[in-house]
Amino acid sequence: MKKKHVLFVSFLCLALLIVLAAVLAPYLVPYDPFAASLTDALKPPSAEHLFGTDKLGRDLFSRVIYGSRASLASALALVACIFALGSVVGIAAGYFGGWIDAVLMRLADMMISFPGMVLAIAVAGILGASMTNAVIAVALVSWTKYARLSRSLVLKIKGCEYLAAARLTGSRTGHIMWRYLFPNAVPTLVITAATDIGSMMLELAGLSFLGFGAQAPMAEWGLMLSEGRSYMQKAPWMMVFPGLAIFCVVVVFNLLGDSLRDVLDPREEE
């Protein structure tokens, strides 16, 4: 098997391991991630508590494992949202052209011109802080990338004769979009989506860190980083382990996306 396939498979396995850990979290954690023992607060890592305890005495190892659920679920949901929304808008804009294209692309330009984090904070401020609203907020600023990508992919094949042939043979617009445009755009979009999982996870963790995403007592890595900040000097494990978790997971998914691109990109042929 070629080297790039080996890489892809290994990263895929790692990613699946992470997903598995998230799914099976309730069975893997030694303690209830929400069970507090106020008198056991801020204990350093030991045999009983692998990662130590946080300021309310909750086992940090359990919370870090549990945190993968929130982080992964929301990141995947977010990527799925912007993938779907962006593709539909981009394909429509590219295929119909004219004023539809103009309006949709001006809308996309508008969203891009906002600094992402700032708009996300504003939206979270209006809607209220929660994980769901954080996903909505980040989705609002991030869908434009997929729209532009799918639009350009559609424009590439728009002039192709087989599209004219399809229309000539009586294909309806929906049929053309579904059978011709979408399958053409999908591989590139999927690669983009896979690579984006990591950065979307970071955006959501960032929002939670600032207080606009996950709320206490949820076990979410960004929120845990924020809680640990006041204890940076006295109980650094409160920041170190959630930080490491974010780092590892984001790296794995980024590498997965990269290796997927290598596998699917025909120009990489030796």
Binding site: Y162, A165, A166, T169, S171, N184
Partner: peptide
């Protein structure tokens, strides 16, 4: 219509069976 460039006139991802029956399905 029958097109000049048969390379470009067909969706590269479609088989012959799909190509010729697409109009009927439409």
């Amino acid at each position: 219509m029958v097109f000049q460039d048969a390379w470009a006139a067909f969706n590269p991802k479609m088989r012959v069976v799909d190509i010729v029956t697409e109009p009927l399905l439409n």
